[in-house]
Simulated assay, not measured.
Amino acid sequence: MKILYLETSSKNCSVAISDDENLLCVAEEVSENYKQSESLHTFVEWALEGAEISLKDIEAVCLGKGPGSYTGLRIGAASAKGFCYGLKIPLIAVNSMESMIEPFLGQNYDYVITLVDARRMEVYTVVYDGKTGQELSPTEAKILDETSFEEFKDKKVIFVGDGARKAQDILQLSEAEFRDDIYPSTKYLVRKTLEKIEKKEFEDIAYFEPFYLKDFHGVKKKQKSEE
């Protein structure tokens, strides 16, 4: 089964194609300017060329559903729905945090904790079992302070995600490891996607919405004062 993967929740615009568990091609780029609107469909074209297949060969679409960038998630969801409607294929959605932990499972960590930068001292976070990848806490928005995650101070823990840098500066966890260069990526969505396909856990394309976690807050422009 040939599957198209889209991940647009972070600074990493990521596209991949697999044939069942075999990853055929990945096209991705981390940009501080969030280039999903510019790059996503170009990356889809590149991935199709790299996999040496055409769009009509795709049999399912998997979307990293968030949480993360509101605009990025909207772009990814609109594209995923468009492909599914046009090709009449199912949509699978996976928590974007799932892909961040894959490289660290089974590496002698007790816990892998994702930290996606929200705003100020806030992060989106999930705690995972470091051996099995089992989710041990629900995805939540958390404001960091010196007491955050203190229950893990005697455990072997790695914090991953672009929120790890500000966490490292404030958390009182001398033994913990921090990796702020880890972003959600389509190349680590394959296993979870195949599990969902096996269980027929497909999304209702018409009513699907990304996992925003919080409402969108736009920036209000200051009105010019009258002279």
Score class of each variant (00 low, 15 high):
102 E>N: 00
109 Y>D: 08
109 Y>R: 07
113 I>V: 15
68 G>H: 01
68 G>P: 01
76 G>M: 07
55 L>D: 00
93 A>S: 15
107 Q>H: 15
62 C>N: 08
114 T>H: 10
110 D>C: 11
69 S>R: 03
95 N>W: 03
73 L>Q: 02
86 G>I: 13
50 G>N: 07
132 T>E: 08
54 S>N: 14
129 D>C: 12
96 S>H: 09
60 A>M: 08
104 F>W: 14
136 L>S: 07
64 G>H: 05
102 E>H: 02
111 Y>E: 00
69 S>F: 05
76 G>K: 07
56 K>E: 03
73 L>D: 03
112 V>C: 05
106 G>K: 06
60 A>G: 13
98 E>F: 12
74 R>Q: 05
78 A>G: 14
71 T>C: 12
132 T>Q: 11
48 L>H: 03
114 T>F: 13
111 Y>C: 03
101 I>K: 00
71 T>K: 02
125 T>V: 07
131 K>Y: 11
55 L>V: 14
108 N>R: 09
57 D>T: 10
100 M>P: 10
94 V>Y: 04
101 I>A: 03
111 Y>T: 01
108 N>K: 13
107 Q>G: 04
109 Y>L: 12
68 G>C: 03
65 K>A: 13
59 E>C: 07
77 A>P: 08
83 F>N: 02
88 K>P: 00
60 A>C: 14
89 I>K: 09
130 G>M: 08
102 E>C: 01
79 S>A: 15
59 E>K: 15
99 S>I: 10
71 T>P: 10
102 E>V: 13
97 M>K: 01
83 F>W: 10
113 I>G: 06
126 V>E: 06
102 E>R: 08
130 G>C: 05
71 T>D: 07
51 A>N: 05
86 G>K: 12
52 E>S: 04
94 V>S: 01
48 L>A: 00
88 K>W: 00
92 I>H: 00
70 Y>D: 09
67 P>C: 01
131 K>L: 12
80 A>L: 10
119 R>W: 11
81 K>L: 13
54 S>F: 13
90 P>G: 04
122 E>Y: 06
111 Y>R: 04
107 Q>M: 15
127 V>Y: 01
95 N>Q: 06
67 P>G: 02
76 G>A: 06
49 E>Y: 10
112 V>A: 02
95 N>F: 05
113 I>R: 01
61 V>K: 04
66 G>F: 08
119 R>G: 09
88 K>I: 01
118 A>P: 08
